[in-house]
């Protein structure tokens, strides 16, 4: 039983590895599940047991990276950050782990995280969204907010985050430095929205 589980994990890892190579080489759109199965040395049918679709596969990579990013964030947090800074650290840690996936991130996110209604919701994408927002919620609650921000505020947050991902995935500036400015600005804006502050003076966000 243990061997089977181990073999399963190995196959899963191999599929993910080969898929990443193919996505980066041929592009997400032009890679078929057949190509991936072939490269991983599996029958197409067997592969579907692991990943029912190419989207699930891509989004699993994204989710794995984002989970690692969240782990990194928890280690990197010092507890001295103000709200904007902590959110920045969270997003930046995720992007750093997503970096190897950047060449094919656009189409993956477009399929799995699209904010527009779709016939079939990508479960991995939806789960990633909820996990991300949970962490945001956890960060916010550390800064003295007793109530969770309402649906509108969190929708604004998610829109900003998707915008950041979209911009970052095609940001050609050195080390994606322009994205960093965008993240900073977006987060200041979001913090202002939920704090109800009329003007951002550029001071660190108050420890409410």
């Amino acid at each position: 039983m243990r061997i089977t589980e181990q073999a399963k994990q190995e196959s899963r890892a191999r599929i993910l590895e080969k898929a990443a190579e193919l996505f980066a080489g041929k592009g997400f759109e032009d890679t078929t599940t057949r190509d991936i199965a072939l490269a991983a040395g599996l029958a197409a049918g067997t592969m579907f047991n692991y990943f029912p679709s190419k989207e699930t596969l891509g989004m699993t990579m994204v989710t794995d990276a984002l989970n690692q990013g969240t782990e990194d964030f928890r280690h990197r947090r010092t507890g001295e950050e103000d709200l904007t800074e902590e959110l920045f650290l969270f997003i930046a840690s995720g992007l750093r782990r997503l970096h190897p996936l950047r060449p094919f991130l656009g189409p993956v996110l477009e399929r799995s995280l699209s904010p527009f209604p779709r016939k079939t919701v990508c479960q991995e994408g939806e789960a990633a969204r909820l996990r991300h927002l949970d962490t945001v919620q956890e960060i916010i609650s550390r800064h003295g907010f007793t109530e969770a921000p309402d649906y509108v505020a969190m929708t604004i947050y998610w829109s900003l985050y998707l915008g950041i991902l979209a911009f970052w995935s095609s940001d050609e500036s050195r080390n994606q430095e322009e994205s960093k400015g965008l993240i900073d600005y977006s987060l200041r804006f979001f913090v202002q929205v939920i704090s109800g502050a009329s003007a951002d003076t550029g001071e660190p966000h108050a420890n409410i």
Partner: peptide, 10 residues
């Protein structure tokens, strides 16, 4: 001004 999270990223 940059907060430290930004400085770290740079």
């Amino acid at each position: 001004p940059m907060h430290f999270a930004m400085v770290r990223e740079v």
